[in-house]
Write a protein that binds this DNA or RNA. Structure first.
Length: 814
RNA sequence: GCCGGGAUGGCGGAACUGGUAGACGCGCCGGAUUCAAAAUCCGGUUCUGGAAACAGAGUGCGAGUUCGAUUCUCGCUCCCGGCACCA
């Protein structure tokens, strides 16, 4: 009797089975090797999009595969629930962010369940709940006591019409996205975490992260941006003060022809008081956007301050300029400009007609025209008085020593990494647990008063945070002196929540502490999967947080993620699929039409995980067709309950067994080592094609087909678990597939004594011969020379040599 | 601008360690089945020439190394991601 493949029905049956048997609920079990398989948790934006389906399926395939290897697998799921879109929805739809968020979570949880992921739903973590954010408030107050958090002024994008702070994303061509008003830079006090205190450790331990992609480690190294240089002062002319600069190229010291300071630098601010042109320029700089990409790509502009520094060695007068490209946040906010040997200094000098001096020449003494382009390499010093003839490297030491002995400067290590600004002038986030008191200043909220709960019933005006209009929230008593005081109304950056959620999954219901001893069973995460767009910020902050937890004594782990898989984005119309860009494809329709297995299979077969995947609606059909063919193949087969593989098989049967075991080997390697699910699926498709071509003649044939079909069902089960659950029963098994182990390939089936050799003439394929694997080289060469396809291409030409790669090819060079 | 990726048939991709370019799938073409269609099954499908055998070209562009390069080196072009308040 034939049945048809009905995904909706069989998927429900499989999911109910896993649910009833609590297959994915895990407890700590020291008897078994644990495997913590994690994906970056989603922001509950409304519906799942294809990027979610892709990353969750990748992780689920790995989790189910590891389970079949006998490991004790934890795969949790939760919600990165704070964030801007909830506030936007609140303004647009007049619905409170909390209500909108919880509704989205409920909908998306159902979508995830429909896709059949092997999650332990008992451990679900939602970051906007007080029982979660209470612990980051607690940690923050601990770090406050330790001096690892501090408050300082920093710059934000200010929308003067909406009277609100804008995210970089909300600034479009320098204007506010709603108001269209020109955005201003505004300095406000904000809270910072001292990630720079961990810069060296975060950098060094990258070397030991063998399970991370090299590209991500390189990005993090460059982001931390360690550079060794010297810091020293240029005295100011006629003044009893000096201008401190940092340079990585002290060897070019004699080539300094001007200095440049940032627009926020005290010297610039002072000069502006006497000169309206300078004041206007600083005013103009206030419209520069805060994003680094904007700073770097804008036109380089500057003005002389009519101030001069004195060169510490030559005593020459050096003009000081203010320039829009100098960053107040890096080094000392001032640079010594060496246009002869720095591209940006050169561009600026050319534009304003400043001197360009060559002080380095190439090691081979080649003559270069410094007027055409700066010379950026290391070399030999020239035009540098006593230092002439020194190499750049030697000069670094000599000049550094000169300043150190004169006590005018010293060698320093600088990092590009800046401290993490965690304050956000937004409502929908974790309240920063600080109280401001007139007498006691900033006071952390004591543990017994935590959590500081974010009120969920709010009205949104669209201008600024509603917390600022809620006296019930911000009016309080000072925890130290008891006087009337005001709460901080800023909230944490949402990266705060996502920097430790992975540990909380292990101690998901701990109510007395942030983490408990279950954390040490599960952490670190064995396999972390997520988008490449998180290569720096999220992954670096998480590595930082893990060290904070370690140094707080609540974790023994330093590195949170042992292995990292960065999956490429799902693109549509050439851009990342995202809600903000409005180019999303809703997976729901596809699931309803074809079933979860088809969607999972298609996502995994369309591209390898790391590659960006350009979405196309075609191809889903093909995946579905394959599953139907598989269903039919099992349906047409009479199952053999006892697999007797010691039978005497004929050549055709041996050939199918060879294919079966080669496929097991390939798929095991593709899923277990390479994470190439697309080629694993291709190999399984080939095996099914081979089964369908196989003409069965007898009982031995049935055994061989049974073996091949069982292999397919097992190999595919991490990718399409529902159909495999059903087919496993069809094949005669009483015990459910979920309890099966990963198939083992039989080496003896793969022994072959004949091999096909590729014959090339001058590297081009001309013929092929099949020989016994042990044929001696001389015999093979004789066969090659006699081959008529080879002869045609050799003709009268002289054979110069023959290259023989055993078991692979012969190349005849003429 | 800086940092990290990517580019292979009509399309998604394969070729893992320098050794058969195009596995597998989509699409398309032809055939079988059908009153007809859908579905299914069989065959073909890089381009050019050829009935075929076969020949030539071919992995973004330009050089180089090598018996042999999609793979390594150098120089470009274009696209994507990140650039610290999108998550």
């Amino acid at each position: 009797m034939t049945t048809t493949y009905n995904p909706e029905k069989i998927e429900k049956i499989a999911q109910n089975y896993w649910d009833d048997q609590q297959c994915f609920v895990v407890k700590e079990d020291s008897e078994k090797e644990k495997f913590y398989c994690l994906t970056m948790f989603p922001y509950p934006s409304g519906q799942l999009h294809m990027g979610h389906v892709r990353v969750f399926t990748i992780s689920d395939v790995i989790a189910r595969y590891q389970r079949m290897l006998g490991k004790h697998v934890l795969q949790p799921m939760g919600w990165d629930a704070f964030g801007m879109p909830a506030e936007n929805a609140a303004i647009k739809r007049k619905i409170a962010p909390a209500e909108w968020t919880y509704k989205n979570i409920d909908y998306m949880r159902e979508q995830l369940k429909r896709l059949g992921y092997a999650y332990d739903w008992n451990r679900e973590v939602t970051t906007c709940k007080p029982e979660y954010y209470k612990w980051e408030q607690w940690l923050f107050t601990r770090l406050f006591e330790k001096g690892l958090v501090y408050r300082k002024n920093s710059i934000v994008n200010w929308d003067p019409v909406d009277q609100t702070v804008l995210a970089n994303e909300q600034v479009i061509d320098g204007r506010g996205w709603r108001s269209d008003a020109l955005v201003e830079r505004r300095e406000i006090p904000q809270w910072f975490m001292k990630i720079t205190a961990y810069a060296e450790e975060l950098l060094e331990s990258l070397d030991e992260l063998d399970g991370w992609p090299e590209s991500v480690k390189t990005m993090q190294r460059n982001w931390i941006g360690k550079s060794e240089g010297i810091e020293f002062a240029f005295p100011l002319e006629f003044k009893n003060s000096s201008l401190t600069v940092f340079t990585t190229r002290p060897d070019t010291l004699m080539g300094v022809t001007y200095m440049a300071v940032a627009a926020e630098h005290p010297l610039a601010l002072k000069a502006a008081k006497q000169d309206t042109k300078i004041a206007d320029f600083l005013e103009e700089c206030k419209n520069n956007q805060t994003a680094e990409a904007m700073m770097e790509t804008m036109e380089k502009k500057g003005l002389p301050l009519n101030l001069f520094a004195v060169h510490p060695i030559t005593q020459e007068k050096i003009p000081i300029w203010v320039a829009n490209f100098v960053l107040m946040t890096y080094g000392s906010g001032a640079v010594m400009a060496v246009p002869g040997h720095d591209q940006r200094d050169w561009d600026f000098a050319k534009h304003y007609g400043l001197d360009i001096k060559q002080v380095i020449e190439p090691k081979d003494g080649a003559v270069i025209d410094i007027d055409k382009a700066p010379y950026l390499e290391y070399g030999t010093l020239i035009n540098s008085l006593d230092y002439d003839g020194l190499s750049s490297l030697d000069a670094f030491e000599v000049i550094a020593n000169y300043f150190e002995t004169k006590k005018q400067g010293q060698k320093v290590v600088n990092y590009r990494l800046r401290d993490w600004g965690v304050s956000r002038q937004r409502y929908w986030g974790t309240p920063i647990p600080i109280v401001y008191c007139e007498d006691c200043e900033a006071v952390p909220v004591p543990v017994d008063q935590l959590p500081v709960i974010l009120p969920e019933k709010v009205q949104f005006s669209g201008t600024g945070s509603p917390l600022k209009d809620m006296p019930d929230f911000y009016n309080t008593k000072c925890p130290e002196c008891g006087k009337n005081a005001k709460r901080e109304t800023d909230t944490f950056d949402t990266f705060f929540e996502s920097s430790w959620y992975f540990s909380r999954y292990a101690s998901f219901d701990a109510s007395e502490s942030m983490l408990d001893k279950r954390e040490s069973y599960w952490m670190p995460v064995n396999q972390y999967t997520g988008g490449i767009e998180h290569a720096i910020l999220h992954l670096l902050y998480s590595r930082f947080f893990q060290r904070l937890l370690r140094d707080e004594g609540i974790s023994d782990v330093s590195e949170p993620f042992t292995n990292l898989l960065t999956q490429g984005m799902v693109m549509k119309d050439g851009a990342k699929m995202s809600k903000a860009k409005g180019n999303t494809v809703d997976p729901q329709g596809l699931i309803e039409k074809f079933g979860a297995d088809t969607v999972r299979l298609f996502m995994m077969s369309a591209a390898p995980p790391e590659l960006a995947l350009e979405w196309s609606d075609d191809g889903v059909q093909g995946a579905h067709r394959f599953l139907r063919r598989l269903w039919t193949a099992v349906d047409n087969h009479d199952s053999v309950l006892e697999l007797d593989l010691s039978l005497d098989f004929n050549e055709k049967q041996k050939a199918l067994r060879y294919k079966t075991h080669k496929t097991i080997r390939k798929v095991t390697d593709d899923i277990g080592r390479r994470y190439k699910f697309n080629t694993a699926i291709a190999a399984v498709m080939e095996l099914l094609n081979a089964i369908n071509k196989f003409k069965n003649e007898n009982q031995e044939g049935k055994v061989v087909i049974q073996e091949a079909l069982e292999s397919i069902v097992l190999l595919l089960s991490p990718i399409t678990p529902h159909i495999c659950h059903a087919l496993w029963g069809e094949l005669g098994h009483k015990e459910a597939l979920i309890y099966s182990s990963w198939p083992k390939m039989d080496e003896s089936v793969l022994v072959k004594n004949e091999v096909e050799l590729i014959i090339q003439v001058n590297g081009k394929l001309r013929s092929r011969i099949t020989v016994d694997i042990d044929t001696p080289q001389e015999t093979i060469e004789a066969m090659v020379v006699a081959d008529k396809n080879v002869l045609r291409h050799v003709e009268e030409k002289l054979i110069k040599k023959m290259i023989y790669i055993k078991g692979k090819l012969v190349n005849v060079v003429v």
